[in-house]
Amino acid sequence: MTQVNPRPLKIEVQNSNGEVTARIPQQLPDKDLEGCDLSGHDLYQAQLQGRNLKGAILYWGSLWNANLDGACLVDANMRGANLRESSLVGADLRNADLGHDAFGKGAWLQGAVLSKANLNRANMVGAFYDDETVFPAEFHPRRRGMIYAPD
């Protein structure tokens, strides 16, 4: 995986009601969050569709019910991230790491929609899913080391 140095930024992330859920320090262009360190941030219901998050650090980030449709998450560190009920339709997750965090837990994908997402070479070992998780056609979560964990 390519090492990307995180760079500071200032951005307000809003939920679907227009409420600001996160503020992070230096303004960047609307679509460019490449390499940013958003680890541990609460991005509940964030509207990040189509955003460039290549190489972003989302470790332990809460992206519950976020919209990441069409987002570029290539090489992103998403270990231990809460992606429950998030929409990642058509997102590019090539080489993304959704595997084990420091406590041996993967990303939480229960109820997430990953239809048409590119999961080539993404590390999914230890990530959690349930009956509501929607995967791309021909994707087999257990073969990729994912853990079935209904709520």
Rank of each mutant, 00 (worst) to 15 (best):
3 Q>N: 08
3 Q>I: 13
4 V>A: 01
5 N>D: 13
5 N>K: 03
6 P>V: 02
6 P>D: 05
8 P>Q: 14
8 P>F: 11
8 P>C: 11
10 K>L: 12
10 K>H: 09
10 K>M: 10
10 K>V: 15
11 I>Y: 07
11 I>T: 12
13 V>E: 00
14 Q>H: 05
15 N>Y: 02
15 N>S: 06
16 S>T: 11
17 N>F: 06
19 E>Q: 13
20 V>F: 01
20 V>S: 04
21 T>L: 09
21 T>F: 01
23 R>T: 15
23 R>W: 02
29 P>D: 15
32 D>Y: 01
33 L>V: 00
34 E>P: 08
35 G>V: 00
36 C>F: 02
36 C>P: 00
38 L>Q: 02
38 L>W: 00
39 S>G: 11
40 G>L: 03
40 G>I: 04
41 H>S: 09
42 D>L: 06
43 L>H: 01
45 Q>I: 03
45 Q>T: 02
46 A>Y: 00
47 Q>V: 04
48 L>H: 02
50 G>V: 08
51 R>Y: 07
51 R>T: 11
53 L>P: 01
64 W>T: 13
65 N>A: 15
65 N>Q: 15
66 A>I: 05
71 A>K: 04
71 A>W: 08
71 A>N: 12
72 C>F: 14
72 C>H: 14
75 D>Q: 10
77 N>H: 03
79 R>N: 06
80 G>L: 02
80 G>P: 02
83 L>S: 03
84 R>I: 03
85 E>R: 03
85 E>H: 08
87 S>F: 05
88 L>G: 00
89 V>S: 04
89 V>W: 05
90 G>W: 14
90 G>T: 15
91 A>W: 02
93 L>M: 14
94 R>Y: 10
94 R>D: 11
96 A>R: 00
98 L>C: 11
101 D>Q: 05
102 A>V: 12
102 A>I: 13
102 A>M: 11
103 F>N: 04
103 F>H: 03
103 F>V: 04
103 F>M: 01
106 G>F: 03
109 L>H: 00
111 G>M: 13
111 G>H: 11
111 G>E: 06
114 L>H: 03
115 S>L: 09
119 L>R: 08
119 L>H: 10
120 N>M: 09
121 R>Q: 12
121 R>T: 11
124 M>R: 03
124 M>I: 13
125 V>P: 01
126 G>H: 05
128 F>L: 15
128 F>Q: 15
131 D>Y: 08
131 D>W: 07
131 D>P: 08
134 V>Q: 11
134 V>G: 04
134 V>K: 10
135 F>W: 14
136 P>W: 09
137 A>N: 10
138 E>T: 15
141 P>D: 05
144 R>S: 10
144 R>W: 08
145 G>H: 05
145 G>V: 12
147 I>T: 09
148 Y>W: 12
148 Y>G: 09
148 Y>Q: 14
148 Y>S: 12
149 A>T: 14
149 A>V: 07
